[in-house]
Simulated assay, not measured.
Amino acid sequence: MRPIPTAELHLHIEGTLEPELAFALAERNGIRLPYADQDELRAAYSFSDLQSFLDLYYALMAVLRTEDDFADLADAYLARAREQGVRHAEIFFDPQAHTSRGVPIGTVINGLARALDAAPEKHGITTRLIMCFLRDESPESAVATFESARPHLDRITAVGLDSAEVGNPPSAFREVYALAREAGLKCVAHAGEEGPPSYVWEALDVLGVDRVDHGVRSLEDAALVARLVADQVPLTVCPLSNVRLRVIDRLEDHPLRLMLDAGLLVTVNSDDPAYFGGYLHDNMVAVTDALGLDEETVRTLARNSFRASFLDEPAKAAYLREIDAH
């Protein structure tokens, strides 16, 4: 199975920090990591739930300090993504995880932007940038982060909501999402991964999201499924992530096929690929093997990814022609 042209819509750039780059950036910035070598760090990538992953995820971000660090991080992801068939990427970043360490938001955005600006020519990938708010931080912190990002909104396409879902409902962040919509930004939010289907309803009706990230628990609510199907709200599903974070026990039990059969607009993505064992094509191969997906279903998933993107219609059409020619 060779990589099919696809858009990646659920990708945390901090989650692409491979051990090799982590050690290189640590040496560059004079930081001592609490691991003997890359193998010992990689061995730590074993998680019991979302929170156990987040603990390591945030701790390892300490190596990201300068514009060069963020540019190198994004460029390394884009190089891998191209090999995986990614032709367009809408990339999450977590500014609060960096500003809380004393890294200015402009350093983060400018560094990422350097790599993204070069991506069409260097990697053949178009990009968009999505600024996420940490739901385990306060809604007031989210608003303050948005205000600090106003000078950079020309680089940002959408806002999102991520981090620990349980006990942190989307509705708490209605104010910052209202500000984002007023500024003309698109809106997405993580919901229905570890959290209940009610969080997906809140993301739709309170935050006014254009896409739902994860959403695998939506199948527990028939009325919600009907709503998502009727409105063709995209769901950015991450199969390997779901297994590694124990949302689903085995890939063979993943509800992706059920979601497609129900008429949901589902896409496949890699989430935090350095931590979860695979980039986009790796996810596509794994779920195809586990669920016995046929070629046309794989093409449908690829088409869905561009349909669900924030590209304009001519750009979507061009990428869909690439799939037809694949």
Rank of each mutant, 00 (worst) to 15 (best):
V209K: 04
L235Q: 01
L293R: 02
L265H: 13
D282L: 10
V247W: 03
E175I: 03
L280K: 02
H254E: 08
L260A: 12
H190Q: 00
C238I: 10
A302C: 15
T267Q: 05
P197I: 13
K186I: 02
T288P: 15
G278K: 13
L228W: 10
Y275L: 03
R246Q: 12
L207Y: 03
Y177Q: 05
V200N: 13
V266C: 14
C187N: 09
L280H: 12
V200D: 07
R257N: 01
V188E: 14
L179V: 06
V212S: 14
V268A: 08
T236A: 12
E252T: 15
P197V: 05
V237K: 10
T236W: 10
E175N: 10
Y177I: 11
E175Q: 10
V200C: 01
G195K: 01
S305Q: 15
L260C: 02
L260S: 00
P239C: 08
T300L: 11
P255T: 08
L240C: 13
A226M: 09
D249C: 12
H214C: 00
E182A: 14
D249N: 13
M259P: 01
E220H: 14
V209Y: 15
G277R: 10
R246T: 05
W201C: 12
A183R: 07
A222I: 08
V216S: 05
A223F: 00
G278C: 05
E182N: 02
G263S: 15
V216I: 15
K186N: 15
E175C: 10
A180W: 02
L280G: 07
L235G: 08
R299W: 07
V176S: 05
V233K: 03
R246F: 09
D253W: 04
A262G: 01
A203G: 14
R250V: 14
T300P: 01
R217S: 13
D261A: 10
L185F: 14
E295G: 05
L235Y: 02
V233I: 14
L264F: 04
G184K: 10
R217T: 10
S218Q: 06
C238L: 08
R174P: 01
V206Q: 13
A203L: 07
R246M: 02
V298M: 06
L235W: 00
L301D: 06
C238K: 09
D282F: 11
G263Q: 00
H214E: 13
A302L: 07
L265T: 11
H214V: 03
D213F: 06
V209M: 14
G277V: 07
S198N: 08
P273I: 02
R244H: 10
K186P: 05
V188G: 13
N269T: 08
S218I: 03
G208K: 06
D261K: 07
V237N: 13
P197F: 02
V200E: 06
A180R: 06
V176N: 11
A203M: 11
R303M: 12
A274C: 14
M284Y: 04
L240I: 05
V188D: 14
V176Y: 00
P239M: 04
A274I: 15
L228I: 11
D294R: 01
R303T: 12
D213L: 03
V243R: 02
M259A: 07
L240G: 07
E202N: 01
L219F: 06
D282C: 13
A191R: 06
P255K: 14
E193K: 12
D272T: 00
G208Y: 09
A189W: 03
V298E: 11
D221E: 04
T267M: 04
G215L: 00
V225L: 04
S241L: 06
E193R: 01
L179C: 11
A286T: 03
G208H: 07
